[in-house]
């Protein structure tokens, strides 16, 4: 997932700390950050190096666009923080940058904050949710992400019938992301891959930026 953020106007060390919080979400592969000055640029390059990601920078109307990319890190290696400004794919950045917004890809986000579809008989409600997810998959809908919190994380338990459905969403390019606190609370940590764990900060960003949130 690519995230964009405008860090201009923030006093040091806020820009680098905010970038770090966004990159704590392992599903963010690339962060495009707009900053005021070279001090921020250099600090973000250090952050990238500490995360073993690449960082490139280019000037943009008096500001600087820093692209931190961790998908390239393993392949390139070596000097990832060279001071030479590298040209990057500019297509998506020439348009006006959303002011102080992290554009987490709009689209539909499915938010499963419990392991049931509505409220009623627990077993029946649970079956309905399995059916909902199965139907969504079969209909070919591809949400931006499926976020799972609270008892919803039980859907990812080994014995859960929905587990393979969610896995299929994932394989189709729709990230299935579970709240770390919840996974820990319900003792499911060992069954869920680290790359699927996100924090509340990321959940807020996803919900905030979605054009539509489905909460069955």
């Amino acid at each position: 997932m690519i995230k964009k953020v405008d860090l201009r106007g923030l006093a040091c060390p806020e820009p680098v700390l905010k970038a770090k919080r966004l990159l704590d979400d392992q599903t963010v592969e690339r962060l495009d950050a707009l900053v005021d000055d070279l001090v921020c640029v250099n600090n973000l390059k250090r952050l990238a190096r500490s995360l073993k990601a690449t960082a490139t920078c280019q000037e943009q109307n008096g500001s600087f666009l820093v692209v931190i990319d961790r998908s390239l890190s393993a392949a390139t290696g070596g000097d990832v923080t060279g001071d030479t400004a590298t040209s990057i794919d500019n297509e998506s950045h020439t348009s006006a940058f959303p002011a102080d917004k992290a554009a987490t890809g709009s689209g539909t986000v499915v938010f499963l904050s419990k392991d049931t579809f509505g409220q009623g008989d627990p077993q029946f409600s649970r079956t309905l949710l399995d059916l909902f997810l199965q139907s969504m998959l079969e209909a070919g809908h591809a949400p931006t992400a499926i976020l799972i919190a609270n008892t919803g994380v039980k859907l990812l338990a080994p014995e859960s019938p929905s587990r393979h459905v969610l896995k299929e969403f994932q394989e189709r390019g729709c990230p299935v992301l579970a709240c770390g606190l919840c996974v820990e609370f319900y003792g499911l940590k060992e069954h869920i891959h680290d790359s699927q764990i996100i924090n509340m900060f990321a959940i807020v960003e996803y919900l905030q930026e979605a054009s539509k949130v489905l909460t069955p």
Binding site: C12, P13, V16, L17, K20, V39, N42, N43, L44, K45, R46, L47, R49, S50
Partner: peptide
């Protein structure tokens, strides 16, 4: 902190 980029101007 220096490694994370908390370096003053």
């Amino acid at each position: 902190l220096a490694e994370l980029g908390l370096v003053p101007a």
